[in-house]
Nucleic acid binder design. Structure first.
Lengths: 262, 262
DNA sequence: CGATTCCTTGAGGCATCTCAAGGCAAGTGG
DNA sequence: CCACTTGCCTTGAGATGCCTCAAGGAATCG
């Protein structure tokens, strides 16, 4: 305990798998090459030179398929691998003492999961697939080995961890000082941007997560999320049909995000 | 923009120095030795071997004094150094678009600040001294150089970054799903533990931050923080006189922390 | 087709916020 | 030394945004 942490000061890590948790299938070592991966500019190799990417390839890490609703790893599991999303969407979540779930993040193609496990050697959160998905499973010990020889690789990892810290800063700001409309607007705009960066439409997309999961992430109840969606629709900012969202007024939505407390 | 970030999707980083911000004094290179530092078990060298600590010493990094109210660095400043607190207390904070401040964390002796700057090369938050303080200023570029040769040092840095991620997870949980009493109880218990780890009393201490700063950190208004302090005092969990706090019922306070929403 | 899950909407309650007033301690200037 | 300012904290009263509880609709699945 030497960090500025606010984690449960006394309570032991309690650990209750979600009802739909099942173990996922490991896939026989299917060699994965970062150099030829279409996600290389979004994922770990982002910003690396050809040589450094080659170092990454030398890891020869495998892939793993995860079906919708299955978990990739669970809070408390021993940590040994960093996972990079190849396809599909994941949520990460922590379990509160009373069994309720707190969603910590949503991850899509090219994003890294599991960095929070390095500190203690155990995963600090669970990762669950929201749809059929596939990940690269990068053994952390190997990565460390190769990184000893490749400064660029090491820096890439460090940079990504720093980015995760910044991401959480932003979420804290959101949870600490925004109202329901601002939160949902921020969430949707962020989603829109990330989808756009992946070549999808920025204005029309399919939500992979439930209202309850969005609510948990944003610190709201699912009814409030639902009502806020309806409110946005009435304000003609977007059209919602269950999980299908179409942003019809991007500027308006941005203003809703910026309009904090009046 | 390839991370699962929720940072301001469109709005540029706006930057307003706090009224009490002044620039702090740099101190001529005063050689600092981790091997002989009394904070070595709490700080960066934690868990390192003697040799690895020696690598750290070879950096010959300097110290810097920061007076109460001065800033160590500001959001948006170019990032070049990691700072380790030697003495005193800091807060880190982000500025919202409307000029309001969101406190992201409090840091005391042995804790590292600035890790969020690695991602973009600019500080993602400001660090401000809450009392006269001193820090070790560790040039990140040098650290990276040395880390290329010292795997242990590299791992120590990585582990600390991971710990920062976990810390923020915990804070998110707190902001996302706790009521005012739980938040303040968690805050006080965490403070208590960290002070204890530094050889101070776990039950009686002086708050270095204002009610407003606590409130910002916990996602509450200052009046609510004040009222909650009073409530705890009425419940005989603690005695408060302005910034002086004495925990009189640690178990009770722990229960207050665990008693989430009934 | 019944069971289940997820979403929407309404009505009422409550925790926290907002606004406002006042106290206390430290600092400042006459 | 005293009047005044300033910053920080406390407390009260009323407003409100979100939560809770409840009912019902729509889609999915075995």
């Amino acid at each position: 305990m030497n960090t500025a942490t606010l984690e449960a000061p006394v309570r032991p890590v309690q650990f209750t798998p979600t009802p739909r948790a099942r173990t996922s299938t490991a896939v026989p070592p299917l060699k994965t090459q970062c150099t030829s991966c279409h996600l290389r500019d979004l994922c770990l190799p982002c910003g690396m030179t050809g040589d450094e990417m080659g170092d990454l390839d030398s890891l020869n890490f495998g892939r793993r398929k995860v079906e919708a609703g299955q978990n990739l790893y669970l809070e408390g599991d021993g940590f040994s691998t960093i996972h990079a999303v190849r396809s599909g969407t994941f949520k990460t979540s922590l379990m509160l003492a009373d069994g309720r779930e707190q969603v910590a993040g949503f991850y899509m193609a090219g994003e890294l999961m599991g960095l929070d496990g390095i500190a203690s050697g155990r995963h600090a959160s669970s990762a669950i697939a929201l749809e059929d998905a596939e990940v690269c499973a990068i053994p952390y010990a190997h990565l460390t080995q190769v990184a000893i020889r490749s400064a660029g690789l090491q820096q890439a990892v460090t940079r990504l961890m720093s980015r995760e810290i910044v991401r959480e800063h932003s979420l804290m700001m959101l949870l600490g000082s925004m109202n329901a409309e601002e939160r949902l607007a921020a969430f949707l705009l962020n989603l829109s941007q990330r989808l756009k960066a992946r070549g999808y439409s920025a204005s029309e997309f399919h939500l992979r997560m439930s209202r309850a999961e969005i609510g948990s992430y944003l610190g709201l109840k699912l009814e409030t999320v639902s009502r806020t969606f309806s409110a946005f629709q009435q304000q003609r900012l977007l059209e919602v049909d269950k999980k299908h969202v179409r942003i019809t007024d991007l500027d308006g939505l941005t203003r809703a995000f910026e309009m904090r407390v009046h």
